[in-house]
Nucleic acid binder design. Structure first.
Lengths: 116, 116
DNA sequence: TTCACATGTAAGAATTCTCTTACACGTGTA
DNA sequence: TACACGTGTAAGAGAATTCTTACATGTGAA
């Protein structure tokens, strides 16, 4: 992962995933060790459904990895851990990533302005 | 700027500013040289008011710098250029930034769930 | 059976983001 | 005067994000 060259779309997804204080806190907490959802929710102090949603976003971006495991007493536990990502944000790195942006170019239409 | 240690709040603002395809494209385009708003809007293919808004967001995050200049024929031209930022995104870098998150801790209240 | 604990997900409200349209101002030139 | 070009900004619609509440499932122990 270190020094990877993400595509524009991947980069946007990663940045969007990390541009939220709570999600940043989740990654930071998991950087201290893996944890399962319910416990992590109590540690961070958010509701479990909310944490579940944010973890989904982080996992979709490839920043955390989850695995469903069975504890000794038979409970289904979903453990999450951080992926060891390494992204560099510089003007030239962004310029390179933009080359591979698909972006479905919004729904922006004619783009002419102030038609007089 | 290179190798800077942003505060959590700064980092969130930077990431939010870059987590948009159009803004990424703006930074990438400006990385190729400074330009003024109206021309940049034509180059990228978006309306000037829209570009204006995105440039504000990028400038607020410190990623681009604008300067109002007077052209030879007396027109007010606002030129923008990229700041030479360099952010590293790794789990430990994020963990460090999170320590300085103020975040006004959302409006999340009791955070107890499924009250039975 | 009931409780405590784990999981997942759907519905709705409140807020924020994105974008268009429309207005304001200024200058130099035809 | 009218046009072409530059600037800024405000109002509103539509879409996406964020969060709560409420429901569903499962296990083991009292």
């Amino acid at each position: 992962m270190t020094g990877s060259r993400p595509t524009g779309d991947e980069l946007v997804e990663v940045l969007a995933a990390l541009s939220n204080p709570l999600r940043l806190r989740i990654v930071a907490t998991l950087a201290g060790g893996r944890d399962y959802v319910s416990h992590l929710a109590r540690v961070i102090g958010v509701s479990r459904p909310l944490l579940h949603m944010h973890l989904q976003r982080l996992e979709a971006a490839g920043l955390v990895v989850g695995s469903l495991e069975l504890s000794e007493d038979g409970k289904a536990m979903k453990y999450f851990e951080v992926a060891d990502f390494d992204f560099t944000l510089t003007p030239s790195a962004l310029a390179e990533a933009v080359l591979t942006l698909t972006t479905a170019d919004q729904k922006r239409g004619p783009a002419r302005e102030e038609p007089s």
